[in-house]
Design a protein around this nucleic acid. Sequence first.
DNA 1: TTATCTGCAAACATTTTGCAGCGAG
DNA 2: CTCGCTGCAAAATGTTTGCAGATAA
Lengths: 116, 116
Amino acid sequence: MLQEATGFLTARQLHERLRRRGEQISLATVYRALQALTEDGHLDVTMGTAGEHRYCRCAGDGPHHHLVCRHCGHTIEIKGALLEHWASLVARQHGFTAVAHRLELEGECATCPTQG
Amino acid sequence: MLQEATGFLTARQLHERLRRRGEQISLATVYRALQALTEDGHLDVTMGTAGEHRYCRCAGDGPHHHLVCRHCGHTIEIKGALLEHWASLVARQHGFTAVAHRLELEGECATCPTQG
DNA sequence: TTATCTGCAAACATTTTGCAGCGAG
DNA sequence: CTCGCTGCAAAATGTTTGCAGATAA
């Protein structure tokens, strides 16, 4: 059902896509499904700068980050062991414990179909 | 007026603080002031996981990141030259250009007043 | 029967905006 | 007068929830 989420989508965007494919699904159901799948760990969630949730279908194989094309939404997963190391080091230097980190990279991908 | 924003605050939190100090300010005015100050570059904005904006008074001296205590909101600015380097390197490796990045570190600070 | 899933619409939270009042120039 | 700042309330947007009907075990 959420095979559509190959990149980062808002609930509304996913809803629109599904309806265009002919599914008669309602927005509320999309939200509920998204919620359930997120709880099960099948989806990652990030916050857009406009305050909306963005859902992404990621392999649940541990912490990673995302490189997202700002035009087409194409997403690449990044396993940033180096970053995680650096993050916990910096945090410890400042006396912080139980540190979680969140990184998002946004740019323009080389093969962006929406470039023209 | 926003000297209160020593850490990350939502508009509501700031509004509450100001009212407790006796200011008869309205929520709309808080938003408007926040908006103006953000445009002027006097405030940084991040998104909380619940979808709310969080405002922070930062020196506008170039890109940096934040280490935030999840309990008291105490915030430390981090200049991550190493991270920026790594980020643009990774992005370039994947063919991305014009890459912006956003990092947030959240943990528990050593001198947290709300630990008990 | 119960349990789950669904749609619709209302509720809810955050943020923005329209209108009017007030003080400064 | 105009201009800008303010408060109140309503609107806009994104998200959640209450209720009832359908379907499955």
